[in-house]
Simulated scan of single mutants.
Amino acid sequence: MSETRAMSLRFPDPEQRAAIAAAAHEEGVSMQEYILTAAYDRATAVEKRFLEAFRESQAAYGAAFAEELRDLDPSPEQRAAELAARAEMELQEREHVGQGRAA
């Protein structure tokens, strides 16, 4: 079973500690809760900004990416031409190999 431990609240700068203690007191919470809440708020603010930037990027470039994806899947005509070219190439290779053995 794990024990719950208090967070170490050692500050090398006494003025910083006093400022945080005053802010926590003003909020009516412990210093530990104040610091954890501030850290959480900062982390979620970074996450929110990342998601906003991602949505902006999608809006700006989404159509371009969709167009690129269409190019990845060839049309039936293009696919048929590729298969025909491959078959012709394989036939030429077989003929070439056959000629080499005969020589």
Rank of each mutant, 00 (worst) to 15 (best):
A64H: 12
E27W: 02
L91V: 02
Q32T: 12
A80Y: 03
A103L: 04
A81Y: 02
E56G: 11
E82L: 03
A21T: 13
E88N: 06
A21R: 06
G28Q: 07
A45I: 00
R86G: 06
F50Y: 14
A81L: 10
E47R: 14
E68H: 04
L91S: 15
A63H: 08
F65R: 13
G100N: 11
Q16P: 02
Y40F: 07
E27P: 01
T44S: 08
A18R: 09
E67P: 02
L72C: 04
M89A: 13
Y61Q: 15
Q99V: 00
D41T: 07
R42P: 02
Q58P: 06
P74T: 00
R17K: 13
A85H: 03
P12E: 07
S2E: 13
F11V: 04
R70I: 01
L91E: 15
E88P: 00
R101E: 12
E82S: 05
L72D: 09
R101V: 05
E47Q: 13
A87I: 00
Q32I: 00
M7S: 08
S30I: 02
Q78Y: 00
E47D: 05
A53W: 08
R49M: 06
R70Y: 01
P74I: 01
M7K: 10
E3C: 00
T37E: 15
V46N: 02
T37C: 11
A81N: 04
F11L: 01
A64R: 15
L91D: 15
A64D: 14
S57V: 00
R10N: 14
P76D: 06
A24S: 12
A43D: 13
A18I: 02
L83D: 13
A23M: 03
S30R: 09
M89T: 09
A21N: 09
R79C: 06
R10D: 15
G98C: 02
S57Q: 11
Q32M: 04
G98P: 09
Q99Y: 11
E33Y: 04
D41R: 15
S57I: 02
E3R: 06
L72I: 06
D71N: 12
A102N: 12
L69F: 08
M89Q: 14
A53Y: 08
I20Y: 05
R94D: 12
D13N: 12
R55C: 03
I35A: 09
